[in-house]
Design a protein around this nucleic acid. Structure first.
Lengths: 238, 238
DNA sequence: CTCCCTAGGTGTACGGCGTACACCTGATGC
DNA sequence: GCATCAGGTGTACGCCGTACACCTAGGGAG
């Protein structure tokens, strides 16, 4: 084992190895326990060694984002824009779900990282090939927001927050305490309906995947309608 | 001045005063410089004094969120659901724009804070009053995601990130460096169009407000159509 | 009037963080 | 065989959140 450790140590560090180790650490221990010190320990190295491969922690995060965004597969070429975009976004979602820390990380960075730009460029390319004007494509990308990367900032997905990936088993429907329910009747109504619904669906109160596709299709349908009608941006009177 | 300081010091601390000072500090110096130590200094008090009024920093953040969400006005009652919801969301947006750190803070907390629940409850109430089924209202809330609170996680709004509020003046259109443009032609195309568009609009390349309303109306229109058609959730065969 | 209780501000200290800076070391090129 | 230098090391600094013991002023209760 001493020799194994020795072997591992002898494998030289590299930017790539650092980034992959960082992603792995964040995946299994949560983003909040990704510190330069922990990461260095995982790599069998002293913290300052990392700085020979990444400039600082922010750059490390950017690199990690590029690694996971790079995992998203290429879109099918030649397909209709709508199924092509839809499929690509759903596959992005699949990737990001393997890295629960990524959405928050992406949103809190300045983000013009190469892999993200490449991804966005490909999506826009699909739209343009489908006959979208530059203008409409532009607004569509904004309208999609982060959904284009496969996540939707749900306001309530207790899991992703705080980066824990330990999956504390989906938590029993929990049904908010009655005094709270009384104060927020409409919220309670929905929570209740969602929980005695068919809980089979995911073990928890509501089906994330369904919600995601619901919103995605709502947007795609609306976009399709605009596109068919030859929507053009209202020129503001100058 | 010694006596003024004395007066200020004599004004007893309170949870409310702490929260307001924290919001003010985050507003003007950015969320990244909101530390217990800085906040205490602003209040003319020693850091540990704060802990007599908030349990810890996370609870402080929750309290701050409640303060800003509490600023959002009540919706007009009796109006049609669509303009009512639209107007309420736009006014939420107005509030949140005064606190650029809030969206990120909201997204990174666990968030079942009272003010947020009250706000969501009111929005759902408007939908239900407009004849929405519990089910449809539920999915609609998910589809809106964080947009319902007036922000949209744009993936690119350089301003909000990192909490700076110093408004470094919108930055000249910047036109990405040519070698980058060559690598991402579709992104470049859009960036270019947006920048020589009518830059008058906001001084920067593209009009945030327009983009926000574009996406909002896309969703609202789609939702209206579902509602008119009496959409019901597809019962999964059990 | 005294005593004690308690709410609330204080001081010190600890462990963790990111990272600047000087240093060492072993492979590589001349 | 010696210089170079990429890359790993060690120490140290200043920031962070916060545990814990302490002090102090004000207000009932006896």
């Amino acid at each position: 084992m001493a020799e194994q450790a020795e072997t591992l140590r002898r494998t030289p560090l590299s930017r790539d190895r650092v980034l992959r180790a960082a992603v792995a650490l964040a995946d299994e221990a949560g983003i909040e326990s990704l510190s330069m010190r922990n990461l260095a320990q995982d790599l069998g190295v002293v913290p300052m060694a990392l700085y020979k491969h990444v400039a600082n922690k922010d750059e490390l995060l950017d690199g990690m984002i590029d690694v996971v965004v790079g995992e998203i597969g290429a879109p099918e070429v030649g397909a209709d824009w709508k199924p092509a975009v839809r499929q690509r976004i759903l596959s992005a979602r699949e990737v990001l779900q393997r890295h629960p820390w990524a959405p928050l990380a992406i949103e809190s960075r300045n983000m013009a990282t190469p892999a993200v730009l490449a991804y966005l460029d490909a999506v826009i390319g699909t739209l343009r090939a489908g006959g979208f004007s530059v203008d409409l494509a532009h607004h569509v990308m904004h309208a999609m927001g982060s959904r284009v990367l496969g996540f939707s900032q749900e306001l309530f997905d207790a899991d992703r927050r705080a980066g824990r990936s330990g999956r504390t088993e989906p938590a029993p429907p929990a049904a908010l305490p009655p005094e709270v329910a009384a104060m927020f009747p409409h919220v309670a109504e929905i929570a209740m309906a969602a929980s005695h619904d068919d809980a089979s669906v995911l073990g928890q109160g509501c089906d994330d995947q369904f919600e995601f596709e619901f919103a995605l299709d709502l947007l795609l349908d609306g976009i399709e309608r605009l596109h068919e009608r030859g929507w053009a941006s209202p020129r503001r009177p100058h």
